[in-house]
Simulated assay, not measured.
Amino acid sequence: MYEQIVAYGLSKKEAVKDYPFGRETLVLKVGGKMFALLTEKEGICYVSLKCDPVIAENLREQNKAIKPGYHLNKKHWNTVTVDPVFRLEDLYSMVDHSYELVFKSLTKAQREAITMRIRATEL
Rank of each mutant, 00 (worst) to 15 (best):
M1W: 02
Y2F: 12
E3D: 15
E3K: 06
E3Y: 05
I5W: 04
I5L: 14
A7G: 13
Y8Q: 09
L10Q: 09
S11P: 05
S11G: 12
S11L: 00
S11E: 12
K12F: 01
K13M: 12
A15R: 00
V16E: 11
Y19R: 01
Y19W: 12
F21E: 03
G22N: 07
R23V: 14
E24D: 13
T25G: 03
L26E: 15
K29I: 13
K29R: 12
K29N: 04
V30I: 01
G31H: 09
G31V: 10
K33E: 14
M34Q: 07
A36D: 12
L37S: 14
T39F: 05
T39M: 14
T39N: 13
E40Q: 15
E42Q: 09
G43C: 13
G43L: 11
I44W: 06
V47T: 04
L49F: 08
L49A: 10
L49I: 13
L49M: 10
P53E: 08
V54I: 15
I55Y: 08
A56E: 02
N58W: 02
L59N: 06
L59S: 10
E61Q: 11
Q62D: 14
Q62I: 00
N63L: 00
K64V: 11
I66L: 02
I66N: 03
I66W: 06
K67N: 04
K67W: 01
K67Q: 06
P68E: 02
P68S: 01
Y70G: 07
H71G: 04
L72P: 10
N73Q: 08
K74A: 10
K74P: 09
H76G: 09
H76P: 14
W77H: 05
N78H: 02
V80G: 01
V80M: 11
V80K: 03
T81I: 12
T81P: 06
V82R: 00
V82H: 02
V82N: 01
D83T: 15
V85G: 12
V85Q: 15
F86E: 13
L88Y: 15
Y92P: 12
S93P: 00
M94P: 05
M94D: 00
M94E: 02
V95Y: 04
D96P: 05
H97V: 06
E100P: 02
E100H: 06
L101N: 06
L101E: 11
L101W: 07
L101M: 11
L101Y: 02
L101I: 14
F103P: 15
F103S: 11
K104L: 05
T107I: 01
T107Y: 05
K108N: 11
K108A: 11
K108I: 03
K108S: 06
A109G: 07
A109L: 07
Q110V: 02
E112R: 09
E112T: 10
E112A: 14
A113S: 09
A113E: 10
I114D: 07
I114R: 07
T115F: 05
I118E: 15
I118N: 10
A120T: 12
T121M: 05
E122F: 07
